[in-house]
């Protein structure tokens, strides 16, 4: 870990009391932030400072702080999860910023993800899409041996790539259309690529797309911004597969 000089920063944070209330930016000065600390640790310092000043700390979602739970969700300096590639907010480190920088921190902004408070948004729509069809219909028990159906390595690997989605919502947040296609396509792809999931692939694609539309997410216009900002690098080729699965399913109806 390289020893670098500590940073003094101006942090412009979105404050919003509740979903219905109007929000505004609040500017805070922070001193002596270690470049080796993570972005969320910087936010911790900010909150500590606010508490000591008798103010309310900034509410933001976070949990595992190792880039896998998908809970953290900040829009930093115009990028979902900040300016570094292939990281979540919690893995973004302060060495990506320079002394004297002004950092703008906003919540995910999309009609599908209403703000709950400050930087915290409601992503329950994702759970609803999953409940509509993001599964293989098997009950516990009574399944064949794990090696009963060999799966080509290529398919298994591709399914794994799609399955690495952490459901953070950066794709919706960054999409100019507020579209959830990357999220939906990752799940549809993962399961359609595996023989176990192939069986109900058509039903799944239709059910998940119908729920996604119903919840008011936008349409994909193939800008690829979702892929560029996805912390896990989920590819938009999954969206092509979703389109294929969906269209084939519809044409067979």
């Amino acid at each position: 870990m390289s020893e670098v000089q500590n940073l003094n920063l101006t942090v412009k944070v979105w404050r919003q009391k509740g979903p219905k209330e109007a929000g505004h930016f609040e500017t805070n000065e922070l001193k002596g932030i270690s470049p080796n600390s993570s972005f969320l640790e910087m936010m911790d310092v900010l909150n500590e400072q606010l508490i000591n000043e008798g103010k309310e700390p900034v509410a933001f979602d976070h949990d595992c702080r190792e880039g896998i739970c998908g809970m953290c969700s900040l829009y930093i300096n115009g990028h979902a999860h900040g300016p570094d590639d292939h990281v979540t907010t919690c893995q973004l480190h302060m060495r990506k910023f320079k002394d004297g920088d002004t950092i703008t921190v906003e919540p995910w902004r999309s009609a599908g993800f209403p703000v709950i408070k400050d930087l915290m948004v409601d992503r329950s729509a994702y759970d609803k899409i999953m409940a509509a069809g993001g599964f293989i219909s098997v009950n516990t028990g009574g399944v064949p041996d794990g090696n009963a159906i060999p799966i080509p390595k290529k398919d298994a690997d591709e399914a794994m790539d799609a399955a690495s989605c952490i459901g953070c919502g950066a794709c919706v947040a960054t999409c100019k259309n507020g579209s959830a296609m990357l999220f939906v396509s990752a799940k549809v792809s993962q399961l359609a690529l595996l023989p176990q999931g192939r069986i109900e692939a058509a039903r799944r694609a239709k059910a998940m797309v119908a729920k996604m539309d119903e919840l008011g997410f936008g349409n994909c216009t193939n800008t690829g911004a979702c892929e560029a900002e996805c912390p896990k690098g989920v590819s938009i080729s999954n969206i092509a597969r979703l389109n294929r699965e969906f269209l084939c399913a519809k044409f067979q109806d």
């Binding site: 516990t140 028990g141 794990g146 060999p150 390595k153 298994a156 794994m160 993962q190 595996l194 176990q196």
Partner: peptide
């Protein structure tokens, strides 16, 4: 392991397609 495979967990596989 059997249950997870049936659920679509993409475990690592060898070139022969087995776990």
């Amino acid at each position: 392991i059997d249950q997870c495979v049936a659920q679509g967990v993409p475990f690592a596989r060898d070139y022969g397609g087995l776990l």
